[in-house]
């Protein structure tokens, strides 16, 4: 019964991972000019690729950028998603179906498309925003400048991601039986108090899940900065760890060190997710027991 699952896992998950592991311990060695036949051979590299990946200041810098990016993005993303979910769930909301779809819709736009779209809006000479503010005599900062680019990219991810996270939180709000709210109202709780004291604690598990998704997505950010890169001088080809992997593998033709960096990134993602879950789950659910 399990055979199809095991075969699919072996072929499409285990085999590529093992092959990546194998590649990460190899390298190419060239002799002389490297021209002509037999001048290039694959040899065992030991841990050289890992040492190079971890010791590369560019890699460290890209990790630093991604952490800053996550520190900006994740609180905004979860805060807005929670706020929207609570607003949609509150009794006084009108046109909730329309709002829900409108907030969710950007999630259906592929990241490359939304980055192109925002890229146009960020370029002063083709952007309607800059056109309007210039007419109004307001001087707008350059979003593609080195100081603001981080916020520009976080904004794209936020625009695309809030809707999805909102739906997750909203769905768990909908699952709460109405009796609880009625009891609270009978006790004299206001809508705000209900939101803070009842709804938020109840949706904590979905908040943790969305936080985990957001952390993983943050560590893997690639499409937005890659799409914006040709438009500005402020994004390098190794701006995020995955961009560096891509550059090493396909631009620099060094699939071996790219494999080592990939393994490092995968291991770090796993570790961060695990630690996050351990820490948060203890605090969130520990009290309930």
């Amino acid at each position: 019964m399990l055979a199809p699952g095991i075969v699919l896992f072996a072929v499409f998950m285990a085999a590529p991972i093992l092959y990546t592991l194998y590649l990460s311990f190899q390298r190419v060695e060239v002799s002389g000019l490297g021209l002509g036949s037999g001048a290039r051979k694959q040899v065992f590299a030991g841990l050289d690729n890992y040492a190079a990946a971890l010791g590369d200041p560019e890699f460290g810098a890209s990790v630093g950028r991604v952490l800053t990016y996550g520190a900006i993005l994740i609180p905004c993303m979860l805060g807005l998603a929670l706020l929207f979910a609570l607003l949609l769930d509150s009794r006084r909301s009108r046109a909730t179906t329309f709002s829900r779809v409108a907030i969710f819709l950007p999630y259906a736009v592929p990241a490359v498309i939304s980055s192109l779209l925002w890229g146009f809006l960020y370029l002063p000479s083709v952007s309607p925003f800059y056109y309007l503010t210039e007419r109004l005599g307001i001087e707008m900062p350059q979003i593609l400048s080195s100081q603001l680019i981080m916020f520009g990219i976080a904004n794209i991810a936020l625009w695309g991601g809030v809707g999805f996270n909102m739906i997750v939180i909203y769905t768990s709000l909908k699952a709460v039986p109405n009796d609880i709210y009625e009891a609270a109202r009978l006790d004299g709780a206001s809508e705000t108090q209900i939101a803070l004291r009842i709804k938020i604690p109840i949706v904590t598990p979905s908040l943790i899940m969305t936080a985990l998704f957001s952390i993983v997505a943050t560590l893997q950010v690639f499409a937005e900065p890659t799409t914006l890169r040709p438009l500005t001088n402020t994004l390098s080809t190794s701006w995020t760890p995955l961009m560096k992997v891509y550059r090493d593998a396909f631009t620099r033709d060094d699939i071996y060190s790219a494999a080592a960096s990939s393994i490092v990134i995968a291991a770090a993602t796993l570790l961060i997710s695990f630690v996050f879950l351990r820490v948060v789950q203890k605090r969130a659910f520990g009290q309930e027991d």
Binding site: V30, L33, G34, L35, S146, T232, N233, T234, L235, S236, T237, S238, R247, T251, R252, D253
Partner: peptide, 20 residues
């Protein structure tokens, strides 16, 4: 040379910094 790809991607990164 045999690593034009490396030199060209280094150009992108280094001169982008300089132009900025």
């Amino acid at each position: 040379g045999p690593n034009v790809n490396v030199a060209f991607s280094a150009y992108n990164d280094e001169f982008a910094k300089a132009a900025d």
